[in-house]
Design a protein around this nucleic acid. Structure first.
Lengths: 319, 319
DNA sequence: AACATTTCCGCAAACGATTGTTGTGGAAAA
DNA sequence: TTTTCCACAACAATCGTTTGCGGAAATGTT
């Protein structure tokens, strides 16, 4: 319409010095009128990159990933990125498919919380090789040479244990998650260590629950026995909800009848009265940290590192 | 490497009859060895379309959208689509930005739950014009000519009210959400209508709460007065959590001291003992319905329609 | 007036995949 | 021997944008 070549238009729209101001203005005006919008497909093809990140989680309807994704999206938006959400359903096969999808889609980078049974990391590493940074978060593999960002499992468990010791709780029930997960082992180890180091006459009962329901039943079983514990430690939000339902069922009040402390993102604890005391593992903070790490990977930082987020104790009234 | 042209390779990989079987096999083999993967950017450019849907919600960390997104992702995956998640933060300006992003990214379609203050629909309609279907879900505009999929607000509220009437509750406290939202008005209207139509000597107290916290305080205020209600109706999960926390605080038991019924997606009610009776508004079902609608839009169905999901009553033990 | 230097813009070649058209052998039919 | 036909594969254009290079006109310099 202006009798100008495509290249001139392209340059004008990018404010290239080669184009005269008058031409630029004409082009800009017409572009506005025509509501011109550059074709992202073509740009992607030419630049061989997109403004999208892949996010692979076991499930988005999870206490923790929800807040992680929410924060990550906000952060990404500020930098002009979007999030491609993929769920693995905690199935390594689907996880592989999703990873493939990320490769095909050629996302700018991938954030992933692996499934509890992921063992083969080769396809993750393959992504890194073709310059797609992979940031593992929360559920991270034990393999060394990869970027990991996770909450301080040790730190949180230690905080929880110390709070219990300090309150003088001597008969403690600790409910952990699936014992096959490394996160469970780490938290259990740290927790146990602190309790033992205190050198008190503490009775520590450990239980494991793979689900909300299991947490409920296993807790009920242990609480109806003689010698009721005077405090319960819950490794996660999922466990906490199970335990709390059990307490309601048995009509036990916190903190009078029994103390409760958890490791949590912070939402679930506020649902109860009094609010549950918890060691915070913030999805929000983790998201910000992960994003920062991703940006530095994209800008070429070759350093592979493991970042840990220290947790803090948030006092409710349940202990 | 095989001394073959690009076009031959392309055809071979698509099993085109023009290519001899021997050549095809050689190409397939080499492709496998080289781990060839077609460039999605180029395909998108050529076909002028992508296998991604945009999803715009006020926030992913919401009781309802969480399960919606989770189901939608599963459904999308089966059809080879992915989800681009965008949050509006309940801000119409950011919603516009996100919409623009969808246009630029040229997604195959958009699912959107509008903010409570969205009034201008022109940019949504503009998407439809350029053949990007827009499916409004849950929070839908009142404008007629668009595709809407939502839970039956009326249906759910009616179910709740009927259950209360049937249980012989005569002093009812109904807690609703922000009165400015159309969803609140619809539910309130339907609920009130059923109660009044029953022609009993029912005392109906209505309260409004814009947040979890407000629900807690307003309920507490009303419950500590003389003539305590014998049942509480909660319009949403958010209200329910506030009300339940209040009941814990006042040490009131359900159903002995007071009955509780809610409209909910179904997750929150299971956290309590006994589980809360609720009229279901399933995010999962809504997602499946929305996706089906999207598919038919993509296959060219020009029909614009409003779909409503009837809800069912799920009996807990709280009434 | 002759030459040097800007200024401004177009040409063409990428990016990778697809597809209508064309070309080239060889075998079968005339 | 010549013609016809088929099987197979290459050519070239296309999607929309970017960018190195070159060229023409305008301006500046002796």
């Amino acid at each position: 319409m202006l009798n100008l070549s495509v290249s001139t238009v392209s340059r004008a729209l990018k404010d290239h010095p080669d184009i005269s101001e008058s031409t630029k203005q004409k082009i800009r005006d017409l572009a506005a009128v025509l509501e011109y919008e550059p074709n992202t497909y073509a740009i992607n093809l030419r630049t061989n990159g997109s403004r999208e990140f892949g996010v692979i989680v076991p499930s988005v309807s999870n206490y923790f990933y929800q807040s992680f994704i929410s924060s990550l999206e906000e952060e990404a938006r500020l930098y002009g990125y979007s999030l491609l959400i993929l769920q693995s359903g905690d199935d390594p096969l689907i996880e592989q498919e999703n990873l493939k999808r990320c490769r095909q889609t050629r996302v700018a980078g991938v954030f992933v919380a692996i499934t509890s049974s992921t063992v083969d990391l080769t396809s993750f590493l393959k992504l890194t090789e073709i310059d797609i940074p992979v940031i593992f978060f929360d559920k991270v593999p034990s393999y060394e040479a990869c970027n990991k960002v996770c909450v301080g499992d040790t730190s949180a468990a230690v905080l929880g244990a110390e709070a219990l010791v300090q309150k003088g709780k001597l008969n403690i029930l600790a409910v952990f998650g699936d014992p096959r997960m490394s996160i469970t082992r780490k938290r259990e180890e740290a927790f146990t260590h602190v309790i033992e180091k205190a050198e008190l006459e503490t009775t520590l009962t450990k239980a494991y629950a793979g689900s909300f329901l299991e947490a409920l039943t296993v807790t009920e079983e242990l609480l109806t026995k003689a010698e009721r514990p005077d405090a319960i430690f819950c490794m996660s939000d999922e466990i906490l909800t199970g335990v709390m339902k059990c307490l309601q069922k048995l009509n036990l009040k916190t903190p009078q009848d029994i103390g409760v402390i958890a490791i949590s993102d912070g939402f679930i604890p506020t649902l109860y009265y009094p609010e549950i005391t918890y060691a915070e593992t913030s999805g929000t903070k983790l998201a910000k940290l992960s994003f920062t790490r991703m940006l530095s990977c994209l800008s070429g930082s070759p350093f592979v590192q493991e970042l840990r987020l220290d947790s803090i104790l948030v006092e409710g009234g349940s202990l």
